[in-house]
Simulated scan of single mutants.
Amino acid sequence: MGLDQAFIERSRARAETKKETTTNFHIWFEHVPTWNLFLKLRRQFIIGGMGGYFGIPIMAKESLFNIEQTPLEDRSQLLDDIQLVEDGALQELNKKDGK
């Protein structure tokens, strides 16, 4: 993914100390930074008037990148990766009656 080693090490340390990953599923190590960022964004989903989820605003993602001091050269790829996770989450969140 082109992430610098310092960012990877910070993500690994956070995952170990904050237990941001769970044992209910397996995640490849190279996806841990994306997953950790997505978890931090999980309360930012926009919910419509009828209860449907629309996604996470780009401003929330940009703000998190700034807070986390994500290197500029890594942000584009991380944004793409977070949006892939978000797409999957939206499919599940917007299922009607468990279908």
Rank of each mutant, 00 (worst) to 15 (best):
M1G: 07
G2P: 01
D4G: 02
D4Q: 04
Q5K: 02
F7R: 04
I8R: 00
I8G: 01
E9D: 15
R12I: 05
R14W: 14
A15C: 03
A15G: 11
T17N: 09
T17K: 11
E20C: 09
T21D: 15
T21E: 10
T23F: 06
F25Q: 11
E30D: 15
V32H: 03
V32P: 13
T34N: 08
W35E: 14
W35M: 13
F38P: 00
F38V: 03
L39A: 07
L39N: 10
L41N: 07
L41S: 05
L41E: 09
R42S: 08
R42V: 03
R42F: 07
Q44K: 09
Q44H: 07
F45E: 09
I47A: 00
G49Y: 14
Y53L: 00
F54W: 12
M59W: 06
A60M: 03
E62K: 00
S63R: 11
L64P: 01
F65N: 10
I67T: 14
E68H: 02
T70V: 14
E73Y: 12
D74H: 08
D74P: 00
R75Y: 12
R75T: 03
S76C: 05
D81M: 07
I82P: 09
Q83T: 12
E86F: 01
A89T: 13
L90E: 11
L90A: 04
L93Y: 13
L93W: 03
N94I: 01
K95G: 06
K96L: 13
K96S: 07
D97S: 05
K99N: 09
K99H: 11
K99W: 13
